[in-house]
Computed example of a mutant assay.
Amino acid sequence: MTDIESPEPVAEPAVPEPTAPGADGLPFGPTGLPGGEAPAKPRRTALKAVAAVVAAALVGVGIGEAIIKVHYSDRPAPVAAAPAAPSASPAQAWGAKSNGNHFGSLRDLMLPVPSGWRLGPDYKSIGNDHELRDADLDKALKETLADVPEKYRKDAENALSSLHIQGIGARTLAATDNSTTVTLVLSQYNQQAVAAENNSYGKWYTDNELYRVGPGVAGHAEAHCALPMLKAGDQLDYLQCYAGVGDLLVQMEVAGIAPLDQNKVVDLFRQQLDRLAIPGATA
């Protein structure tokens, strides 16, 4: 898959891909940054490694960690299927239902390109304004599973199947002054697994000394934001935010010239979450 490329060269330092990798080459986050809490058992260590491969390949979202929580904990709790959704109004093409499920295109559910921004570089295999569903999603998942060691592949297949992944979409933004790039990713799957995954990110950021405390998101207590530690003289800064909204795991990754305008980019995340609000998304 292709990582995000930098915007056009400018006099200032170029902005790298929003998911600046850790030493293991995976994105920042519970499945991607080294130095997390060591698993208690060898088998769980191996399974965490498998989940990290799945998560990294699955367009950077943390679905792998949800697989761990659903299937590979010492006392796994069954994940109930999401309740049946009521019929959607034919007059509304996209939005959220009162039971937490969203309907319509993920591209419609994503925040439109705001003033002062333009579509940015491609995000992995999805592009800069696209979603994967149906055959394309199945193909991506099969390619992901091909990277899992054969001895764990059946477990990974069952885990992914249990999440009932419906789609993954991404939209990237680049500031018109080329100072900042933003990636918004929506992953639609089992509500309980989304909630568990979002909770795991919150704990990871809180307990990990590799992160600085991130800003809050106005009106959205469920959102978690964090910034990796910087060294003196660093010219680039990063921010990562996550939130679970019903059946959607919402991810925002930011890379920009330091000092990063946190208020500006976090407000983009607020606007995205407002758009997905339950019981009804707003245009």
Rank of each mutant, 00 (worst) to 15 (best):
M1Q: 02
L173W: 01
N128D: 01
Q271L: 13
D207W: 08
R44C: 04
K154H: 12
A88P: 09
G32D: 04
D122C: 00
R44S: 11
G127N: 02
P27Y: 08
G216P: 08
A277H: 12
Y152N: 08
G29I: 03
I168K: 00
S162T: 12
V59K: 01
A159P: 05
L273Q: 04
A232H: 12
R44M: 12
K139D: 13
A91C: 05
Y189S: 07
Y205W: 14
R133I: 00
R153C: 04
R133M: 01
S162D: 13
S161M: 11
L145H: 05
A56K: 14
N198C: 10
N208K: 05
A175I: 10
V113C: 04
H71N: 10
T172C: 00
L26C: 10
Y211E: 09
G95D: 04
A38G: 03
T31P: 01
G202N: 13
Y238M: 10
A38V: 13
R153S: 07
L26V: 06
A159R: 10
G60I: 01
P34H: 02
Y72K: 09
V194R: 05
E65D: 14
N178S: 13
A193R: 07
A23F: 14
L249G: 04
P42Y: 05
K124F: 00
V245H: 02
T180E: 05
A283P: 07
L230K: 15
A93G: 08
D177G: 05
A93V: 13
Y123N: 01
V245A: 08
L239A: 10
Q271G: 03
A159C: 07
G216K: 13
A243T: 10
A170Y: 00
R171W: 01
K231F: 12
I4H: 02
G35H: 04
M252I: 06
A175F: 04
L47K: 07
P86C: 03
D108R: 05
D267G: 04
V213R: 15
A170L: 00
E150G: 04
I63K: 00
T206M: 11
L268F: 07
P16R: 09
P39C: 04
V54T: 08
L47W: 12
A23R: 12
A175K: 15
A85E: 11
W117Y: 11
D24H: 10
P42D: 08
A193T: 13
G60Q: 03
